[in-house]
Amino acid sequence: MIAGWIASGLLLAYGAMVALCLGLDRHYRQVWGIAATLGRYRLLRGVGWLGLSVSLLCMVAAWGWAMGPVAWIGALSVAGLVLTLALPWWPRMAVASAIGGPLLSSAVALAWVLG
């Protein structure tokens, strides 16, 4: 269970970073080649911050309120850097991988509710 929460927290941090990244004009163009509307940028940033919050909750579920936030900050840094380094080589793939976080964390949360 703890491993599930940790993995969810990490993947969600990555997914949130992808959303925040696409919420920036420069990076949205980098991935899709065109600009998006201001509304979409705002939506993406909103999703990003939401993802970061849920990621924090996962880390707290794994480690508690004392240690969880420390682990969360570490997870954010690593996720952001992985995205930054992947973006120039595999931009679409880097974005597509963001789906793993929500999927896994839903599965873990479901298992937690049922079990």
Binding site: M17, H27, T84, L85
Partner: peptide, 25 residues
């Protein structure tokens, strides 16, 4: 503005990008 920027294979530019990204993140 350039939070996730890394431009590889560009010599000095790449080193600066990596230094910035790893420091900021």
């Amino acid at each position: 503005k350039e939070f996730f920027t890394f431009r590889p294979g560009k010599g000095q530019r790449s080193w600066l990008d990596f230094h910035n990204a790893s420091a900021v993140l």
